[in-house]
Nucleic acid binder design. Sequence first.
DNA 1: TAATTGTAATTCAAATTTGAATTGAGGGAT
DNA 2: ATCCCTCAATTCAAATTTGAATTACAATTA
Lengths: 303, 303
Amino acid sequence: MDWQQVQCFLAVAERGTLAAAASHLGMSQPTLGRHINALEASLGLALFIRSRKGMALTEAGLSIVDDARGMRDEADRIALKAAGSAQSVSGSIRITASDIVSTYVLPPIIAALGIAEPDIEVELVPSNTLENLLRRDADIAVRMVRPMQNDVIARKTNEMGMGIYAHEHYLARRGEPANMEEFFRHRLIGMDRSNLIIDGMHDFGIAAERNMFSVRTDDQVAYWELIKAGAGIGFAAHFLANGAPGLRRILPDITIRALPVWLASHRELRTSQRIRRVMDFLHEHISALPLKQGMPEHDTVEH
Amino acid sequence: MDWQQVQCFLAVAERGTLAAAASHLGMSQPTLGRHINALEASLGLALFIRSRKGMALTEAGLSIVDDARGMRDEADRIALKAAGSAQSVSGSIRITASDIVSTYVLPPIIAALGIAEPDIEVELVPSNTLENLLRRDADIAVRMVRPMQNDVIARKTNEMGMGIYAHEHYLARRGEPANMEEFFRHRLIGMDRSNLIIDGMHDFGIAAERNMFSVRTDDQVAYWELIKAGAGIGFAAHFLANGAPGLRRILPDITIRALPVWLASHRELRTSQRIRRVMDFLHEHISALPLKQGMPEHDTVEH
DNA sequence: TAATTGTAATTCAAATTTGAATTGAGGGAT
DNA sequence: ATCCCTCAATTCAAATTTGAATTACAATTA
């Protein structure tokens, strides 16, 4: 039995179609299909039922998919150890962060990193899902919640103060709410499927519901652009609002819980010179940012 | 990372030389050497120290050899399960067949199967609709028409000869028809919504219509019981009539097209030892049945 | 010292694998 | 009812991989 074929099997089992699994593995659909055929031949049983809707696991396939996942866990551990013991400072590194952080916080810092460490290539992966550091989806994650995974080391690096904001254009048309009651009669910008804002308001004892929000998007960057465009009132980080002309803070007496900024990496990667260097660099620069309170300028990264 | 290369790594780590590991893996020494090189390149570290005495693990190699063994354990488990589910004939199996076949043909055969293969549980699904083998409604279907679905393998197993029959009690009351004209003046038993009989007569150039039949039912078993009870004249398989006392064949010169008996299964299930075993068993026993012509006894299943 | 043995690396023609393009077929939308 | 989209399968030329033979090298043996 060829282990590569098991790797192929798992990819197809988890993605459901040959084409999707092939592009994930970086091979072509015919090749992957042949590997699956070869595995079935060598095991002497059918693992998938081929249909026009994709590849569905048979009973036999279902019974071995967990073992294949076990193999992947071990393989991931090997990859992790290898990355950890690679002592070279040069090479590439994958950083994942939320859309907002990827778009508005990290670019100047990564630019500075490129000057300080020209040999390190950086891959930035904007993602709002919590990437699995155990699986090495990324080497370093910047997160707004405390990472709880085992074998993950994390350090809190800063806090991002939040406030309620709207653009002057909007306020000129609709007036500015003076209290919470008026606030709820405005056009509020919310999230669609994500419960981030609704849950945050619940924590505050406010029974928020999805239909309170007149404008909804799950894309955090689009959310911020909606506020800037005067589409309504929304929640935003102070540092964003400070750098945007025409933005006005609403109900400044309402304090909103600040979001923590955590840096996380896998324990095995501590020993990597390169990852340690980037971790330290990110920590140094993110902690120096004035994220907590409103200030006239937020781009304080020195070159 | 290519899992096949990990497989190679483990073989070399445990055998100490490329040549020994290569012959164990069934590949050549140069190929194996190249795989090891590729793995080292992709991990970015040296796993072996090459010497004239063989391949000695480096510290990095040593640190991942246990994880590679873990992968092998999982791989072995997969191979074991595969061998088990391919060889094992135990488990349950779903057989679908028409009412008549389920009621009067299969029971003795399934009883014999239970003796020959005590570990196979059989689920019998009487159904006159053509079950969808692709959807795994059943593992094996016994059908009276040639299965045309794609991905279905089928073999013709026997032919079921048909005739026109009535019970002596009925004939004593109404007399026996001597030709087709008289036949149509009798109480005929037909089907209600199903066109099985009407279409069959059309094939013979007889313009049959639903209201020619004085007694109608779509239940094939009830149909047969109606004939046995002397409710009228109807069509029945020879083998049924042969085993029923008091039944008399009508117009024996009229030949009615025999119904083929097909065994069908999904192509993906070819590889299942259990299903193959049951397929073969059914084929063997159904083909041995004297279904084509009338004979005094039809229960010829040997135990 | 010279021959022998066992090792990994190299060479190069042959076999195999690969993938872009195409085909074919089913399901869903219009 | 029709078209369209998305699958897997097929085709075939091109790229890659493979392995028999050979080389190179060091340790061991005669």
